[in-house]
Design a binder for these strands. Structure first.
Lengths: 347, 347
DNA sequence: AGCGTGACAGCAAGCGCTTTCTATCTAGTG
DNA sequence: CACTAGATAGAAAGCGCTTGCTGTCACGCT
């Protein structure tokens, strides 16, 4: 039914070994023979059997990219950059590798299961993106898996994830970014700032919030716990959290959001509450996703070099770039001041 | 070095066959034996060798999802929905399948290569999303590949892609949506509408444009070729195209964009040109991506049920839902009238 | 008591490819 | 001109798992 190597060999009048060598091209084969084989491959429409090949060679060309939410451009942009470097078909890199992205939906179990699946497939490399869940049990389980993967020869790289002893990491300076952002707001004169955080158990959430609080502390502004609301990394969450913040303290002059998407929700809530941005309330986001510049007013935010970080992680995963010293590279964000933040109204 | 089935068998004092059967669970195994095996698996930290298993069983649990641009939420949303139904770990569906998304970047060659790679891996199913390239040679090549895949037992489903004889398709009524949108604008009184199209060779582009023109024709409005500009499906393209449209005819009262992202770029260009939306110029998008409602004013657009369509495609791909009659299901968009469109200023 | 019948467990033959080792042939060398 | 090195090609042994076919028991029936 299906065409096998042997069929090609028979047709080209050579041994299967030769066909294999022509296809893999790492062994001398006479030009005439090669041609004959290629012709047979073509005529028979032969397609290599991946599993068989992976089994025999004990390697595979699968590379896994784990993301928390594939519908979120934050991950989409990184994934795209990684995939590009990984090689995939037509990518910058050579060989044909199957770069696949796996959507964990932020669930620890799914993350683990995908890792196992990738391990089953003897993946060549795995890149984990985005914040991690801070549950110790889960962290240990993931660490364990990563170690095993590495032991089995799978290259493991983290991108936009806090470093762990088990892998090379390209990490974002979320803390620093958060701090810069809040410093900017404080510099404008704000003293009553609301903060909309992401899910409480995510590292990204914690780091950004810590940066915010550090800035507050440095300016001697008391950090009222009332002024922080936790939510999800989506628009609706930003909307609701803003309403809640307003309910708690209508005199807020600025809202700092966990990311741009949340910030957009915050803007909507403010507008619906009859407040103008930034005249009545300033709003700031994080990430600088493409749409942030199109908000009206354009969003002040911290730009994270998602594509660059992804590309670098991808290259490292392919062994085309050396790991950073110490296995950790920290990438800083850049404050982008735009129209959504301004001085608070004089009281 | 690595633990194999045989190791587990030895430890559990059974034959490899028994271990395999315990793991696959489709053959009677005494409870006590099963337990012993499971214990050994656990103690040894055994991980099945995917390729070996796929080779022996001549099947695989890989499912491929092809997207044009993974950084675009349009695809992200569909991919996410598909993946959810496919099963992946923790998905609604049972078994553990490796649902992977492949980013073609809109390139025909990459599309083909990914298809071959998937074929190599003997994928269980493949879902192709988004518009197709209208190059006859490429269409034929893809059709060919799809047929082969289907012959080899891979289920092939198209989602948001024009139907082809080779596969089941969930298709969007882009033409109808485009028509509705333009009818809405005409109904408001617009007579001089600019159109920013996507890449010329994409089916999606053509269909939406055809709908637009059909509406124009029905209203007896002459379709000036000058009023259509082709571009890419991104923001910058919308920005530049709008500037160009304005250059050609400053009296335009409405701009219809190929999708929401492009529309956002158009809005920016209009604002930068000192025009107000919708007072001076109305703007309409397509897709109703999440951020569209956050634009100011909120974008009038055609909502496409991306998630629903994806979910359905996913279920069909897994054989958990019957194919639609004739193998084609057409999904309509829903006109969402919002603030970005209004009556043109009285002249 | 004799035997058919399930319920399990094991044997062994591959699945389709890679790769080591060997065989063959040609050409260069002293 | 015998001899060796280099270049190719082939034989065959797996890679780790699945599964059809064969046992082997322990029962329960006549």
């Amino acid at each position: 039914m299906t065409v096998t190597l042997a069929d090609v060999a028979a047709r080209a009048q050579v041994s299967p070994a030769t066909v294999s060598r022509v296809l893999n091209g790492n062994y001398p084969v006479a030009a005439s023979t090669r041609e004959r084989v290629l012709k047979a491959v073509d005529e028979l429409d032969y397609v290599l059997n991946g599993p068989a090949s992976a089994l025999a060679a004990a390697t595979s060309d699968l590379v896994g990219i784990l993301v928390n939410d594939i519908a979120d451009p934050f991950f989409g942009i990184m994934a795209s950059a990684i995939q590009n470097e990984i090689g995939g078909p037509g990518g910058r890199a050579g060989g044909e590798r199957l770069a696949v992205v796996c959507n964990t939906g932020g669930s620890p179990e799914r993350e683990l299961t995908y890792l196992t699946l990738l391990q089953r497939q003897r993946a060549a490399a795995v890149v984990l993106t985005g914040g991690a869940i801070e549950d110790p049990a889960h962290l240990a389980a993931v660490g364990n898996k990563l170690r095993r993967l590495a032991d089995a020869g799978t290259r493991v790289v983290l991108c936009g994830r806090p470093p762990t002893p088990e892998a090379i990491a390209i990490t974002f300076d979320n803390r620093g970014g958060g701090q810069q952002l809040t410093e900017h707001l404080i510099g404008l004169g704000h003293r009553r700032l609301g903060y909309i955080a992401g899910p409480e158990e995510r590292t990204t959430t914690r780091h950004r919030l810590e940066g915010h609080r550090a800035a507050l502390a440095a300016a001697g502004i008391e950090d009222d716990a009332e002024r922080t609301v936790y939510g999800r990394y989506d628009r609706l969450s930003g909307y609701e959290a803003t309403l809640e913040l307003l309910r708690r303290d209508r005199t807020l002059t600025a809202v700092v959001a966990a990311n741009d998407t949340v910030a957009l929700g915050a803007c909507a809530a403010l507008r619906d509450s009859g407040l103008r941005i930034p005249d009545d309330v300033s709003v700031a986001g994080f990430d600088d996703l493409p749409f942030s510049i199109d908000a009206v007013p354009a969003l002040t935010t911290v730009r994270l070099p998602l594509a660059e970080a992804g590309a670098r992680a991808g290259r490292i995963a392919m062994g085309r770039e050396e790991a950073p010293p110490g296995g950790i590279a920290t990438v800083r964000g850049e404050l982008m001041v735009r129209g959504s933040t301004g001085a608070p109204r004089a009281k």
